[in-house]
Design a protein around this nucleic acid. Structure first.
Length: 605
RNA sequence: GCGGGUGUAGCUCAGUGGUUAGAGCACCGGCCUGUCACGCCGGGGGCCGCGGGUUCAAGUCCCGUCAUCCGCGCCA
C-alpha cells in the first residue's frame, strides 16, 4: 500500500465537467497567494497546473512553500464567473482542499523556477547544477517530451520498414584517425585502453557483413574535442546502415523519414514551423560556388557571384594580383547595406578579416547619384559608388552590376582571395547578412542534400591525403581509376543533409571490397602493417563476401534544436556537460580513490 | 592553444576613484476572505570571483589568475 493517497486526476486535466467530483492530486506547490486566512495555491504535476483553494473552514492552512511535494484531496468546484481565469486551461474551477498530505517539504530554491521570464537569464551553470529542479519547469519538460516523441516516431518509421535496431558496444577500440578518443583504462593489463566510440561506424558495417541488411540504432557517440554551442562531448545520432542499396535508396529513405517525422512533430506539438517539402540537392562543387560552403543556409537566396571574368585585365592591384595567382574575385549582395556608414562598413570588413580575409572591397548601389567623383552611373540607371571604381573600365563596372544582380540599396561585398579561403569568408558574410536582414526566418526549416564530396583533401601540414568523410567511403565507380593518378579529383559516394546552415547528417556508400579498401588505405598513406593493426578485423570481414552497403547518421540533438529554435544544444539534453566537458551536478570528472589508481595500474603524471 | 563578453545579496541586475554598496524578485515576521506576477508594512542578508599593485582613498584604475558564455583553431 502506498504511503500516500494516489492521484485520481492530473492537475492540468481538470475542467468544468469535473465540477462536483472529489479528486486526489499528487504534485508540487507551484506558487502561493496568501490572502490571510484564505490561501490560493497553484499546484503542478506533469499534466499542468490547477488552483487549490485553502479555506480554514474546511482544513487548517498547512505549512507549505513553493515546491513542497503534496497530495491533496478535495472537491472540484466551478468558480464564480468573475473569478474565472481565461488564461489557464483549468481556470474555470478550483479544487477546494479537504485534506492535504505533505509528502516532502522543499528548501528555498536556487532560482525562481515558477517564473519563466526570470528563468531566461538565470546563470546556466546553476541551472545545470540543479537540473532536477530546472526540468520541473513545464518548458523544459516539453523539450524532453518532444525529443522522446521524435525518437519514438523515428523508431516506428524504421521498424515498419524491416530495420533491426541493434546495440553496439560502448567499450571499443581506439581509432586515432578523426576526433580525439575518450579512453578507458583496461584493469587487467595496464597500458591497454578501450576507447568510447566516436560513432558505431565499423560495427554497423560489420552488421552488414553479418547479413542484417537493415540496421539502425539511437546511438551515443563520444568525441573529445572543444565544445561549441551545438556540440557536446557525448551526443546522440540516429545511426543507420543498409545493404544492397544505392546512394539514391538511402537518400529517399532518410528524406522520407525526416519529412514524415518532422511534419508530424510540427502538428503534434503545434510548433511555429512550416511543413517540410522535398529536399533540394546540390553537389559539393555547386554548393561551394553558390554559397561558399558545404552547409548552406537555404532559407534565403543571396547567392555568391563571381566577378573574376568581369574584372579580367583590371589594373586594380588587389584584384589583379589575386587573379594572377589563380584566385577569384567574388562577392555577396547585402540588401539595404548601401545605407551603412563608413564605420559600419569598416566593422563588416573587420568581421570578414576575423575569418581570414585580407580585406573587403565594397560598392554601394543607389538609384540616384550625389555627384561624387567616386560614382558611376550605369546604363540601367543604377549608381555604383566606391573609391576603387576609378581603376575599372566602364564595361567592367557594368559587368559587375549585371553579374552580381545588384539592386538599388545593396552593398556589394567583394572578397579577392584564393578560392577556398574566399569561400570561408564569403559564406560567413552571407550568413551574417542573412541574420542582419532577417532573412534567416525562424519559421523555416530549409533542408537540403549536399552530395558528391571529394574523397580526399590534401593536408599541407602532414603532406598527405586525408579522408574528407572517413576511410571507408567509396569512390564513385567512374572515378576509381583516379586513385593512383589524380586523388584530388575523385568524387565520393558521400552525402550530407544540411538544415539552415548546419550539418545535420552525414553518410556514404562504403567500400565493400578488400582490394578497393587497400588502394584507398594506400592513398591515405596507411601502410600494410598499420592497416592490419588498425583495421585487420574489418578487412578480414570484407573478404567473406561482404555485401555492397551504405548508410547515414543524422544528429538527434540538433534535430530537436531545429524544431525548437534552440541555439544551445544543452537546452535539449536532460543532463548536459558544460564548458570543458564537466558535469556540475555530479561533479564529474572527479578524483578517484587511491585503491582505484593502484588497481588500474595508473600513476599520477 | 587564441580572441571577445561576463563575474556585486539566494536569483536578475544598478553602482562618476570619495558617506555605512543599492533595487526588483526570493527569504523571514506582521496585516489582508476571491487571488491568479495578489497587495500593504517591517526585517535579515555582501570575501563586490581570487591574488597582487597604484592611490590619502579601489566594487570602480593597472597587472596577474580562476570560472563561465560565445567564437577561431580543432571536430575521419
Amino acid at each position: 500500500m502506498a504511503s500516500f493517497q494516489q492521484r485520481t486526476q492530473g492537475c492540468g486535466e481538470l475542467r468544468l465537467a469535473h465540477a462536483g467530483q472529489t479528486v486526489t492530486l499528487n504534485g508540487w506547490v507551484h506558487r502561493l497567494r496568501d490572502m490571510g486566512s484564505l490561501v490560493f495555491a497553484d499546484m503542478r504535476d506533469g499534466t499542468g497546473l490547477c488552483q487549490l483553494f485553502l479555506d480554514p473552514a474546511n482544513h487548517p492552512i498547512p505549512e507549505i512553500k513553493t515546491e513542497t511535494c503534496i497530495s491533496v484531496t478535495g472537491q472540484v468546484v466551478e468558480r464564480a464567473d468573475k473569478d474565472k481565469n481565461p488564461n489557464s486551461p483549468t481556470g474555470e474551477v478550483d479544487v477546494v482542499v479537504e485534506t492535504m498530505q505533505i509528502l516532502n517539504p522543499s528548501k528555498p530554491l536556487p532560482f525562481p523556477l515558477n517564473d519563466e521570464t526570470q528563468m531566461q537569464s538565470v546563470n546556466e551553470e546553476l541551472r545545470i547544477k540543479h537540473r532536477y529542479l530546472d526540468i520541473r519547469r513545464p518548458s523544459m519538460r516539453k523539450k524532453l517530451a518532444l525529443r522522446a516523441a521524435a525518437v519514438r516516431k523515428i523508431r516506428a518509421y524504421l521498424d515498419a520498414r524491416d530495420f533491426i535496431e541493434t546495440e553496439t558496444p560502448i567499450f571499443t577500440k581506439s581509432t586515432p584517425e578523426g576526433a580525439r578518443d575518450y579512453l578507458v583504462p583496461y584493469r587487467l593489463e595496464p597500458g591497454l585502453f578501450y576507447a568510447l566510440p566516436q560513432s558505431p561506424q565499423q560495427y554497423k558495417q560489420l552488421l552488414m557483413v553479418a547479413g542484417l541488411e537493415r540496421y539502425y540504432q539511437i546511438a551515443k557517440c563520444f568525441r573529445d574535442e572543444s565544445q561549441r554551442s551545438d556540440r557536446q562531448p557525448e551526443f546522440t545520432q540516429l545511426d543507420l546502415e543498409m545493404s544492397f542499396v544505392t546512394q539514391e535508396d538511402i537518400l529517399r529513405l532518410i528524406e522520407g523519414m525526416t519529412v514524415s517525422v518532422i511534419n508530424e512533430l510540427i502538428d503534434e506539438f503545434e510548433l511555429d514551423k512550416d511543413h517540410l517539402a522535398p529536399f533540394p540537392r546540390l553537389t559539393y562543387d555547386e554548393s561551394m560556388a553558390r554559397y561558399g560552403c558545404d552547409k548552406p543556409d537555404l532559407r534565403f537566396e543571396l547567392e555568391l557571384f563571381d566577378l573574376s571574368e568581369a574584372v579580367q585585365g583590371t589594373e586594380f592591384g588587389v584584384f589583379k594580383g589575386t587573379l594572377e595567382n589563380g584566385g577569384k574575385v567574388r562577392g555577396v549582395r547585402y540588401p539595404g547595406g548601401a545605407s551603412l556608414s563608413r564605420k559600419e562598413v569598416g566593422e563588416l570588413e573587420d568581421f570578414a578579416k576575423s575569418f581570414g580575409a585580407k580585406g573587403m572591397a565594397s560598392i554601394a548601389i543607389t538609384s540616384e547619384g550625389q555627384g561624387s567623383e567616386n560614382e558611376f552611373t550605369s546604363v540601367s540607371g543604377l549608381v555604383a559608388k566606391a573609391g576603387f571604381l576609378k581603376f575599372l573600365q566602364p564595361e567592367q563596372i557594368e559587368a559587375i552590376l549585371s553579374t552580381s544582380g545588384a539592386q538599388a540599396g545593396d552593398l556589394l561585398c567583394i572578397i579577392a582571395d584564393e578560392y577556398m579561403a574566399g569561400n570561408n569568408v564569403l559564406y560567413r558574410l552571407r550568413h551574417e547578412i542573412g541574420e542582419r536582414t532577417g532573412l534567416r526566418d525562424p519559421r523555416k526549416l530549409a533542408f537540403c542534400f549536399v552530395m558528391d564530396f571529394p574523397l580526399v583533401e590534401w593536408n599541407p601540414d602532414e603532406k598527405r591525403w586525408d579522408s574528407m568523410h572517413h576511410p571507408f567511403t567509396s569512390p564513385k565507380a567512374e572515378d576509381m581509376d583516379l586513385i593512383e593518378t589524380d586523388p584530388g579529383a575523385i568524387r565520393a559516394d558521400c552525402y550530407d543533409i544540411v538544415c539552415n546552415g548546419t550539418e545535420w547528417a552525414s553518410g556514404s556508400i562504403r567500400i565493400h571490397r578488400p582490394d578497393v579498401q587497400a588502394r584507398v588505405f594506400r592513398l591515405l598513406g596507411i601502410d600494410d602493417a598499420r592497416q592490419k593493426e588498425r583495421f585487420g578485423h574489418i578487412l578480414e570481414a570484407f573478404s567473406f563476401g561482404a555485401p555492397p552497403h551504405g548508410g547515414i547518421a543524422p544528429g538527434i540533438d540538433r534535430m530537436i534544436m531545429f524544431l525548437l529554435n534552440e541555439e544551445n544544444i544543452r537546452e535539449v539534453i536532460a543532463f548536459p556537460k558544460i564548458g570543458l566537458g564537466q558535469d556540475p551536478m555530479m561533479e564529474a570528472p572527479s578524483e578517484i580513490d587511491e585503491v582505484q589508481w593502484k588497481e588500474m595500474g595508473l600513476r599520477r603524471n
